[in-house]
Simulated scan of single mutants.
Amino acid sequence: MNNVKGKLIIIGGAVDKGSFTEVSFDQNVANNLNFFETGIMKRIISESKHGEQSRLEIITTASVIPREVGPEYIKAFAYLNAHNVGVLYIEKREQAHDPEVLERLRNADVVMFTGGDQLRLTSILGGTEFHDILLDKFKNEDFIYAGTSAGAAAASNNMIYQGSSSEALLKGEVKITSGLGLIQDVIIDTHFVQRGRIGRLFQTVVGNPRTIGIGLGEDTGLLITGNGRMEAIGSGLVIIVDGRQIKDTNLTQVELGKPISINNLVVHVMSMYDTYDLHTHQMEIRNSQYSIPLMAEQDSDDADPKVSADDRE
């Protein structure tokens, strides 16, 4: 992401509700808003170019109930005093070339891609004029691409679109295709903790160890800036899978459907405010048990163990 001016905010979805998942959709918007407690939607607004005044466009292409999901996002952002929000209903490829749609994209400070089916998202938008403008804005403007669930999975150059959790470490069980290409050399999986998808990332990374696997837990996201710095946001976990140190595997020796062995795969676990650098591959834990807060050090230096509190007074 060198020389990229835009920011990515990718979100893993939510537990049962939140992000207006189609399985547990609730007509009462307040019941769908797990993100408020974790601050992810608020962070989208605060990171945007004009804050609460920023122009946000909700892209519901991945969803099979776009007309229900879109208005709920408008209500959700309104709870956070962001009212300059619209919904772009792009359900066919020709709509991704519509001049009015393209002009609205050009004027947007933030686009928010909803959950659903990431293959539907990429098959409709991939290679269109809409896609070209999206990539150009992300590279050259103070612009935010935010995506939850399918919208997050589709952000990278390659994306997982199929693969069972229980059989993910059997050769050939994980299916990968091209994503929207906003970020290179990573692959993103969502609903990661609740659905037990770590095996899907393992197989993806062992097939190309240059790729960094990112697993987003529920109610959890990553803020990724143009310098390659990733910050965990939200209440859950982010899993980073680094295959650069892999020593051995049987990937090319076993038949399809057989278990895969991997020696020396590196895994990091991030929680809120932790950071990871995609260039140096270094992780920093915000509340490390091995770092002494500055205030505690000062208090220790100021205190004289030989002098009682009464004497100091």
Results as ranks from 00 to 15, higher is better:
residue 187 I to N: 10
residue 291 S to H: 11
residue 309 A to H: 08
residue 182 L to P: 09
residue 221 G to I: 06
residue 298 Q to W: 11
residue 277 D to I: 03
residue 155 A to M: 03
residue 91 E to A: 07
residue 242 D to A: 12
residue 238 V to K: 13
residue 161 Y to I: 13
residue 28 N to G: 09
residue 18 G to K: 04
residue 32 N to A: 00
residue 101 V to Q: 05
residue 230 M to E: 02
residue 99 P to Q: 07
residue 96 A to T: 04
residue 211 T to M: 11
residue 256 L to F: 15
residue 14 A to N: 01
residue 270 M to N: 00
residue 31 N to Y: 11
residue 255 E to L: 14
residue 207 G to W: 05
residue 170 L to S: 12
residue 25 F to M: 14
residue 285 I to N: 05
residue 312 R to I: 13
residue 250 N to A: 03
residue 141 E to S: 14
residue 309 A to W: 02
residue 246 I to H: 00
residue 49 K to Q: 15
residue 261 S to Y: 02
residue 215 G to S: 01
residue 134 L to H: 05
residue 18 G to S: 04
residue 160 I to L: 12
residue 48 S to A: 05
residue 306 K to S: 15
residue 232 A to F: 15
residue 187 I to C: 05
residue 14 A to R: 01
residue 275 T to L: 02
residue 62 A to Y: 01
residue 186 V to W: 13
residue 180 L to Q: 02
residue 5 K to R: 14
residue 15 V to E: 11
residue 67 R to Q: 15
residue 177 T to C: 08
residue 56 L to G: 07
residue 101 V to L: 06
residue 218 E to Q: 01
residue 182 L to A: 11
residue 14 A to G: 12
residue 237 L to E: 11
residue 151 G to P: 04
residue 171 K to A: 13
residue 261 S to I: 02
residue 180 L to E: 00
residue 304 D to R: 08
residue 182 L to N: 12
residue 286 R to K: 09
residue 109 D to C: 13
residue 161 Y to Q: 08
residue 260 I to M: 04
residue 99 P to W: 04
residue 75 K to D: 03
residue 57 E to G: 03
residue 149 S to V: 03
residue 259 P to I: 14
residue 69 V to M: 00
residue 248 D to P: 01
residue 71 P to W: 10
residue 182 L to C: 14
residue 55 R to S: 09
residue 214 I to G: 13
residue 190 T to C: 06
residue 85 V to H: 02
residue 271 S to Q: 11
residue 121 L to V: 08
residue 213 G to M: 04
residue 72 E to N: 08
residue 289 Q to K: 06
residue 45 I to R: 07
residue 17 K to Y: 09
residue 40 I to V: 10
residue 208 N to D: 14
residue 191 H to G: 03
residue 311 D to K: 15
residue 195 R to L: 10
residue 71 P to A: 07
residue 252 T to M: 15
residue 148 T to I: 02
residue 87 V to M: 11
residue 179 G to C: 04
residue 46 S to R: 09
residue 159 M to V: 01
residue 107 N to V: 02
residue 258 K to I: 14
residue 198 I to S: 06
residue 191 H to Q: 03
residue 154 A to H: 02
residue 210 R to S: 13
residue 203 Q to P: 05
residue 176 I to E: 08
residue 96 A to R: 05
residue 6 G to W: 11
residue 101 V to N: 03
residue 290 Y to W: 12
residue 53 Q to W: 05
residue 305 P to C: 01
residue 14 A to E: 01
residue 107 N to A: 09
residue 21 T to K: 12
residue 219 D to H: 06
residue 282 Q to F: 03
residue 278 L to A: 08
residue 225 T to N: 02
residue 265 L to D: 00
residue 219 D to F: 06
residue 276 Y to H: 12
residue 102 L to P: 05
residue 236 G to M: 06
residue 280 T to Q: 08
residue 6 G to A: 15
residue 140 N to F: 10
residue 248 D to H: 08
residue 90 I to A: 10
residue 221 G to H: 01
residue 265 L to S: 02
residue 10 I to D: 13
residue 10 I to V: 15
residue 148 T to K: 08
residue 305 P to M: 07
residue 280 T to S: 04
residue 278 L to H: 09
residue 165 S to N: 05
residue 193 V to W: 04
residue 199 G to K: 12
residue 50 H to F: 12
residue 205 V to F: 06
residue 253 Q to W: 00
residue 222 L to R: 05
residue 234 G to M: 03
